[in-house]
Nucleic acid binder design. Structure first.
Lengths: 340, 340
DNA sequence: CTGAAAGCGCTTACAG
DNA sequence: CTGAAAGCGCTTACAG
């Protein structure tokens, strides 16, 4: 009797009086096993606490049971939620999650990911913005025949490889909300233009306003860097304008926190003098005072869906439309109608 | 000529006109290879972009090249920094990092980790508070002969398995600092008593004050839950006392943010009326206004050291004293001498 | 210092 | 529906 957790396919085969090939069939859910044989084997596996060795299986299969999570530099909360989501889907699947941050500013970064995928014979890879926006990376993965899912704010790839975050739509929602409160003089602090998400969030906001007949002139738009300091700078800029905006939409919460600082320094009260809406619903949002109205994206769901897509059977029917996930506005205490 | 990244030990052996055992010796840095043979083989490996297959190696070695990172529920920033640190040490080592969150409130959680370690034949495991504080888990890992490193605020294990965070010392430093500013009436918001870190941080603070002749009476100590809301509650409690404390030490930044909220609601200015010191130096610390004075711990260094310990040669001399890492106070804008 | 044989724990390809 | 043989890409144990 082998030690618990140490049994091999040979132990099971011997005890079940079948060949190891039959045990293998049970492991791999082959239909070509008589029901009673299958049951006998499954019982035995449970009794011995048997789990097939992923390395041996991987060696024979010529690929591993590892999913890679590849990202450049999102916020900590984003990464962690994504990991939790992916792990939700991988639980009890026999697959494990290997984290692989990278620096997409290095011109050999794709090579690093290729080597990673090749050497570990990854089953698949989840790509998060902004690396997910890189078509060259996607092509490199296709070339070496590694499955991948790209999480992005626009449909950049086949539906089978895409998870769409609908950030533009969320920008529209922020615009509609502020308009409905009665704001007419708005300010926008975007992220860097090289981030597709920034363009979508800000673009959606401007579009939403335009739909309701409010013009957002370019001098009320400030390009930030998704950082606290750039939020401060953006707010300094916008709050010095005349007429002063009564509401500011910042394309992430960190910049929104910067807006708080600039407003407080000027003695402006939030939301009395200025409404602020952020994006991300980071932990910060509820820890600021007043609590921040912001856009919540179901990041964990994204991670779960991405992992599920990678685990789907090889020839499962591909969706005709990219799967997507819908962010929504969370109203807290940083927004109200403009002062009269 | 095999495709790049697809060569095997057999290709190398054939092209070098040696046996694959000799190639294996080069891979494993055996000294039993003639220098010129070694060099010929190494050149060939580089030319073909050869990297040994970790699964095949693992199968033969009876253990994998995976390091597990096991944690319950620390903050996102902590997890991510720990991961970056561990990956710093693993880079180009052939080892990969597999993340494994768990729920230490479930009574079968140790079993889950055991199965994970056993099935993946992990090379080693990094344990973060609070799972690192669980002796039963450590024992379980020892029983199945899996290497582990425990990161904790007190030396719970052999030096070879410990990384000591010196949180008590940091608590003392916070006390000394506030005392030196002239504060005599202090308040303390601790974390939950079931967290060892909370006891050390708070205990160090009280001890530091006592050393300088300042008594911290129990009614000026509030047991929080490391959450924002508990920080608010703690501050509500402390600020209602008479005499009112002129400074509060919160055992993490999230609770310190809660103190901000409570103070602002009461119309107290920070740091004019109340000094606040936090712990963690989370992103929040610089995004609050005023920026928070807090304790910075080199989490990434911790992760790096932990991984290095796991990679150390099997019979490397163990340290006689646990390795440790020293946090330090970062003074920002939330602290100043008490009002006169 | 080097190598031929056997084996790690699985699966593939084939046969029945 | 089931199995014997060969192989995945490495290392161990042994021999020289």
């Amino acid at each position: 009797m082998p030690a618990p957790g140490k049994a091999t396919i040979n132990d099971i085969a011997r005890l079940a009086a079948v060949s190891k090939k039959t045990v293998s069939r049970v492991i791999n859910n082959s239909p070509l096993v008589r029901p009673d044989t299958r049951e006998k084997i499954q019982t035995l596996m449970k009794q011995l606490g048997y789990a097939p060795d992923p390395q041996a299986r991987g060696l024979a299969f010529r690929r591993s049971f590892l999913i890679g999570l590849v990202y450049d530099n999102p916020t900590a909360q984003y990464i962690v939620n994504m990991q939790y989501g992916a792990l939700d889907a991988l639980r009890d699947s026999g697959y494990e999650l290997v984290v692989h941050p990278c620096d997409s500013n290095r011109d050999d970064y794709i090579d690093g990911i290729r080597r990673f995928a090749l050497q570990q014979k990854l089953h698949g890879v989840i790509l998060i913005p902004r690396v997910s926006e890189d078509d060259q990376l996607a092509r490199a993965l296709r070339e070496i025949d590694v499955r991948y899912v790209r999480i992005a704010s626009i449909p950049l790839d086949d539906p089978a490889h895409m998870l769409h975050t609908q950030e533009r739509q969320a920008g529209v929602e922020a615009a509609n909300y502020l308009q409905s409160l009665g704001h007419r003089q708005l300010g926008l602090i975007t992220g860097p233009h090289r981030y597709r998400s920034s363009i979508e969030r800000g673009g959606g906001f401007a579009h939403g306003l335009a739909q309701r007949g409010i013009e957002l002139t370019p001098d009320y738009v400030f390009e930030g860097g998704y950082t606290f300091e750039s939020g401060v700078a953006g707010a300094e800029y916008l709050l010095a304008k005349s007429p002063r905006p009564t509401a500011i939409f910042a394309c992430n919460d960190e910049m929104a926190a910067g807006v708080y600082k600039a407003a407080m320094r000027r003695g402006l009260s939030i939301p009395g003098d200025l409404s602020v809406v952020g994006y991300d619903d980071s932990p910060l949002a509820t820890q600021l005072w007043p609590a921040l109205t912001t856009i919540h994206s179901p990041i964990r769901d994204l991670g779960r869906q991405a992992a599920q897509m990678l685990l789907a059977p090889e020839h499962a029917p591909a969706p005709t439309q990219p799967l997507s996930v819908t962010p929504h506005l969370v109203v807290r205490d940083s927004s109200q109608p403009p002062p009269v």
